[in-house]
Design a protein around this nucleic acid. Structure first.
Ligand SMILES: [Mn+2]
Ligand SMILES: [Mn+2]
Ligand SMILES: [Zn+2]
Ligand SMILES: [Zn+2]
Lengths: 132, 132
DNA sequence: TTTTACTTTAAAATCGTTCTAAACTACTTG
DNA sequence: CAAGTAGTTTAGAACGATTTTAAAGTAAAA
């Protein structure tokens, strides 16, 4: 399926701007990035785009499940092209994230979900620190 | 150990402002809060404090290990008086966090820590959603 | 007591993100 | 295709959380 079809299937009009972003993000490579990172890639590809449009598109892509947003206490939002359920190593010094595939972690015992709620996804974060 | 001693032990001068905050936060009750939440509590206690001082103190307290900061993709920092290793339920709709004690989770299989790094803490986040 | 380093503060600045409103474009309908 | 319309892009303004500034205040050291 090409990117135009992917956008259509997600219910998004394949505009020029969304296609530029899809061409960068939906290439099958897993990565973590900020809106500014993406703007730099767009610029490098010979295109340009308003930062408002980049935020609009990232939000649409995320809400359609084409990308994810990572839980992170950094002040800048981090997005993730790996949409499979997976986990992360986090180097708190640098903010760098490394994927952990889902089958690398085995949660043996899980607490009971609070009354009236449903489990909506489990994320494991392993904080790591450079060895001295 | 009283709060003045706790601050001294943490290497912090027990100033009037830090004592006011310690009296609120270090009462042994586990809670999640923002800088603004804390300012409201300070006001309710009949005191007042510049928001810059509140941020300064929270950062110092966190760096000394008197409190923690939660990983959260919300735009407002969330702090935690529960400094034991523990986990969270997160209702993504409301942002509400609920503690999960460490022994309620059992990680059976963990991935190998990347070369040159040390494990610096594991956090499990269980996203939950209101049942319909 | 004097000195020193650290702390607090109001206000300004910063920075990521969202909003506004006007111009533009993709899709629908005739 | 031609119009109509609903959705999208944009520059720039606005916003809100957090940090910085720089001057006044306070705690600890000498
Ligand atoms: Mn955050
Ligand atoms: Mn943010
Ligand atoms: Zn990832
Ligand atoms: Zn907690």
């Amino acid at each position: 399926m090409n990117n135009k079809e992917k956008l259509r299937k997600a219910g998004l009009r394949p505009t020029k701007q969304r296609m530029i972003i899809a061409d960068i993000l939906l290439d099958g490579i897993n990565r973590h990035f900020t809106a500014e990172n993406l703007q730099n890639e767009i610029n490098s590809s010979g295109n340009s785009m308003s930062i408002a449009t980049i935020y609009n598109c990232l939000k649409k892509f995320r809400n359609c499940g084409l990308i994810k947003q990572v839980e992170s206490s950094k002040d800048t939002a981090i997005f993730d092209t790996n949409i499979n359920q997976h986990h992360h190593f986090l180097d708190e010094e640098t903010g760098k994230l490394i994927d952990i595939e889902n089958d690398e972690v085995n949660l043996h015992k899980l607490p009971k979900i609070p009354q009236g709620y449903l489990n909506n996804g489990v994320e494991v974060l392993i904080k790591i620190k450079k060895q001295i």
